[in-house]
Write a protein that binds this DNA or RNA. Structure first.
Lengths: 265, 265
DNA sequence: GGTTGTGAACATATTCACAGCA
DNA sequence: TGCTGTGAATATGTTCACAACC
């Protein structure tokens, strides 16, 4: 990778760690809730609990953005909402297209969480001619033939792929050729994209498989030897398991891991 | 946390790193595709390309499972499929309930990727009495009143929450009380759960916000100074961006980052 | 020759613990 | 006194590079 520079980002500068970026939306959500309840300020401890992380991590994350808090007091909710929104680029409006209007595509189109942030569903696109014109989420579905035109006319740079796996690569190529540079991929395939294009993927079955892995551990290990790492899930980019984590410094004594009866009826 | 032991898992043992666990489903998917094409063996280089990671990472990941490859040859596809399935706990059948049969819940119920792995949708549950009895994905929706009974009778330990945010915490409590120990949460809320319960979350709007962050960088930085970290996305637990990554050792010279015209249209 | 498996080097992320300031 | 901001310590993850082996 070029050089490998940018080791420590000197207080307030470019180069926010990816792990931090991935948590900013979490903080933003918690802050928005506080804002709606007209809470003026919040401590790192409280906000961390609301976001499901620990306070040291939160403070370190915020330190990459700058010094937006007040010692002895906490953070100004409104101000933080603004700063994080700006950092995430949500003060501008992002037109988004959703390609593949099956069950999932329709769910995404109806999902309120998009509009409430800086996103606007500019168009719904499907390859099925029978879908064309049909309204989904109060918006007519358009045919794939017009994909390029739609992207260009709306200045879309973010595309969501909710097609079957087989169609995803081709759709991504057309999106990219038309000007899209960020893709959220729900199709269970690896997309090959040129440099400069970001792809994030969400795969429902992968998440379940990761849960199954831990679930299996719980069932098996508790009798065996270690039993230790059993309740230690991801907390990664998307993972972010909670496991009692909401309670600030509360003892993690509890454990649990009962066999849970199970049985038939 | 306890002690913090288990630093280096001595060749084949417990304690597979979380990052590795999160990639196993990816490898499994690629291997399944190879298996369907009756490919007998595959090298780390080829498999890595198919899974969208690099080969060193893949080999290291596999080394945590044991030595399942043959030097000079590669990995036996069928054997690896089995070993990874077993490691993930997919050789057994996991009954799953989906709570909240809105657009998203219906999409999940119809999602073929579940059944194809070791998962079986045991029941669909919704709080709306009008939904009760209605068939979704060939299965009658059941009312929330029967949640506990359903969990117990089917021995469900994995629950999927696709309800509105407001209902999620309460649903999770009922699921857990009835015996569920792993939850996949699609509701945009932080769930507080007791120790020993795993939660993984998928938040559509968070993924988009992360994309927006990088998108903003592309638009802004390229004229400014750095311009370096621009095309360097997540590759984290869920992120896993591709960026030319599919090509094995191909030069990452290209760059791109054109301003992309944009404009109105 | 070709490819795995892995120690060692490097990079990133998290947590600790406390100085510094309101 | 209470809370932030951050260096230092630790933990986790990735990549390199090569010995071991087929």
């Amino acid at each position: 990778m070029a050089t490998g520079r940018t080791h420590r980002p000197a207080t307030r500068s470019r180069g926010i760690p990816e792990a931090t970026v991935a948590r900013l939306p979490l903080y933003l959500r918690a802050l928005t809730a506080l804002s709606e309840r007209s809470v003026p300020t919040v401590s790192s401890e409280e906000l961390a609990a609301a976001a499901g992380v620990n306070s040291a991590k939160l403070r370190k994350d915020f330190s990459y953005l700058g010094s937006y808090g007040t010692r002895g007091v906490g953070y100004d909710v409104e101000y933080l909402v603004y700063q994080i929104s700006r950092e995430l680029g949500l003060t501008q409006d992002w037109p988004v297209v959703i390609v593949g209007i099956g069950n999932l595509g329709a769910a995404l189109a109806n999902y309120g969480g998009f509009a409430s942030r800086g996103f606007r569903v500019a168009a719904l696109i499907d390859a099925d001619p029978a879908m064309a014109g049909k309204p989904v989420a109060g918006m007519p579905v358009q045919h794939t033939d017009d994909l390029e035109k739609i992207i260009e006319e709306n200045g879309v740079s973010i595309g969501v792929i909710a097609t079957p796996a087989g169609a995803a690569q081709q759709v991504s190529e057309r999106l990219i050729a038309a000007g899209v540079t960020s893709i959220l991929n729900f199709a269970p395939t690896v997309l090959s994209v040129p440099d400069g294009v970001d792809v994030r993927k969400v795969d429902l079955s992968i998440e379940l498989q990761i849960l199954a892995f831990h679930e299996q551990r719980k069932a098996g290990e508790e009798t065996g030897g270690g039993a230790e790492a059993a309740g230690t899930p991801a907390e990664g980019t998307t993972g972010g398991a909670s496991g009692t984590g909401a309670a600030p410094a509360a003892g993690r004594a509890g454990r649990r891991l009962r066999a849970q009866g199970r049985a038939r009826g």
